[in-house]
Structures are given as structure tokens and as C-alpha cells.
Computed example of a mutant assay.
Amino acid sequence: MDLARELSDFLVLVEQRINAALVDGDAGPDVKGDTLMEAARHLVLGGGGKRARPLLVRLFGDAVGLPGEQLVEIGVAAELIHSASLLHDDVVDGGMFRRSRPTVNARWGNIVAVMSGDLILSTTLLRLVELDARMAQSALSVVAEMTRAAIAEVEARGIMDLPLAQLRYIAEGKTGSLFGWCGKAVALIARAPDAVQRFDGFGRHLGVAFQIADDIRDILGTDVGKPQYADLHSRTPSMPMLLALAKDDGLRRKLRDAWAFSSLSPERAQELGAGIIATGAVDQSLERLNAEIEAALDQLGPFADTVGGQELVGWARKLSAGITDQVRSRVA
């Protein structure tokens, strides 16, 4: 069986296990349908999720020779932790659409969205305790890091001179920490201590690159299922935005004036977005994305020569190539 087929079969198993984890069985005998799990299924199932984290788990497993069946539960846990964070993020951001569908908070309200995220998270951690207490402990640490990064992002809103180091801290905490956990958990269960830090480091750098890619797509309008200029509308600093403001005082004044109002008109957002692109900040952001990817690949060390490691390298390179193509076609 070729690797592509093996990966596909693995993701099918992950999907089946996610379905089983989101049933109403624990709702109680007198409850006709668990609203929280219904809301969770709305987000997690059938919405076009890329399942990037379970895929990472499988590739890390291949890098240390761990059979696929031992990786399924880790992949499920990573995806469900991610899903819980999305439920909470949509409440914080007031998001109305995700993956081209209404968010849980838009359909059921903030209370259901928050509690659904809490239920997914607690259920996932309990499953990890049964699997391996060490993984549950490391997952709890990651959840704490993700939470700190999320509030740091909220506190950064409207700050036009946010240090780039702080922006990177937010990206690593919100995305990189869970990417890193995918590798760390695999290394723990594989009893491969030399892989723990290497896989964690790879995942963290790759996660930062993923966040920069999202920032670029937001400015270019190439993020399918998400409205363009979401960061400008929410006053959330992004990599292209901060790099552009550091180069253009006139743009800084325009943005400050625009953020003085409660909302941005589509025309104003378009003007500001074009101004950001005109500074060359998107190209600079791409350079930083590629630097993070190179740092990620350096972390792999000897594992880069394994079958799984080669796939991880290819996956990272594909991210770079895809964003580069988008930048060249939209900025040229």
C-alpha cells in the first residue's frame, strides 16, 4: 500500500473516532438530544476541516516507526482540542461564519458555544488520561498556553506598534503549541526521548508559519470561507499590517483614523488593504514565513531522512510554495 493510501485510511479512522466521541450517550436518560454535542458536531463534522493536526500526528508517527493504529487517538485529541479553541475564538471574535457556514455562536448563541467548547475539551482530556497520563498532562499545558496566547491577542487589538516578538508569541501559543504537541505526544508514546524536543520545535515553527500564511491570505483575500480584511475589521494586528505601519506613517494615520469609528466600510478596508500591499509588507511577511519553515526543518535533524520526516519536509515546502504563488499572482 502506498503512503497516500495509508494516510487516507488513517484519516478515515480518525474521522470515525471523532464521530464516536461526539455522540449524545452521556447526555442522560431524560435528555432528548444533547444540544452541546449537536453544536460540537456542527463545527467539527462536515464543515470542510483540513484535519491538519491528525495528519501531522501520522507523519510524526512514521518518522519514529509507530504503527498507525496507535496514533489514531492522538490525532482525534489534537483535532478536538483545536475544535474547542475555535468554538471559544468565535465567541471572543463575534464570528458569524466559519468554513462558509454559520458559527455555533451565530446559530445557538454564545452560551452554547462556550459550553460546547468546554465539554469537548474536558471529554478529550479524560480520554487522554485513559490513554497515557503523560500525554494528558502535556495537553493541559498546551491548553493553558493557547489560552494565554488568546487573551494576549485580545489585549493586542488596536495596538499599531505591537512588537513583532509579541505577535510571534501569540502565533506560537495559539497554533504552534498544538502543532508541537502533535509531535511531542507521538514521541512520548513511541518512547523516543530524542524526538520530543525536535518534534515540538518543528511543530512550533510550522505553526507560526501557518499563522503568517493566514495573515497574508487575509490581506490578499485568498482565504476560502473567511471574509477578506477580517484583521482590519477586528483591529487585530497581523504581520503584514505591522510591517507596513513601520514603513508608512501616512498609512498609520489613515488606520488610526479608521479605527476611531465603530466599523470600517468595505471601501475603507479595501483602501487600507491596498496601502498595506503597496509597502511591500506582504513580501516581507512571506520572507518571515519562509524563515520559520527553515527553522522548523532544522529542528527535525536526523528525523528528516525518515519516510515521515521527508513527508513533513514536503508538507512544509508545500505551504511555502502555495503562499508564494498567491502572493505573486495577487501582488504582481
Score class of each variant (00 low, 15 high):
M1C: 03
D2R: 10
E6A: 12
L7K: 10
S8K: 13
S8N: 15
L13D: 07
E15F: 04
Q16W: 07
V23N: 13
G28T: 03
P29Y: 03
V31T: 09
K32A: 15
K32L: 11
G33F: 15
G33N: 15
H42M: 11
V44F: 02
R51C: 07
A52C: 09
L55N: 15
V57E: 10
R58K: 11
D62A: 13
L66P: 01
V72T: 10
I74W: 04
G75R: 00
I81K: 04
A84K: 11
L86K: 09
H88F: 08
D90V: 04
V91W: 13
V91P: 03
G94P: 02
G94A: 07
R101F: 08
P102C: 04
V104Y: 05
G109D: 01
I120P: 03
S122H: 08
S122D: 14
L128A: 00
V129T: 14
E130W: 14
E153F: 03
D161N: 14
P163N: 07
Q166A: 11
R168L: 13
Y169T: 13
S177K: 09
F179T: 04
C182W: 01
G183M: 08
K184P: 15
A185H: 12
V186K: 04
A187D: 01
I189E: 07
I189T: 05
P193D: 02
D194L: 15
A195F: 05
Q197S: 06
Q197V: 08
F199N: 01
G201S: 10
G203I: 04
L206Y: 06
A213V: 05
G221C: 05
G225K: 06
K226R: 01
Y229E: 03
D231S: 05
P237S: 02
S238R: 00
L242E: 06
A244R: 01
A246K: 00
D248L: 02
K254Q: 12
R256Y: 10
F261W: 14
S263T: 14
E267I: 13
I276M: 00
G280F: 03
L286I: 14
L286N: 08
L289C: 12
N290W: 11
E292M: 07
L297P: 06
L297A: 06
D298Q: 14
P302W: 09
F303I: 08
V307T: 15
G308S: 08
G308E: 04
G308M: 06
V313G: 01
A316F: 10
L319M: 05
T324M: 11
Q326V: 15
S329A: 11
S329C: 12
V331R: 00
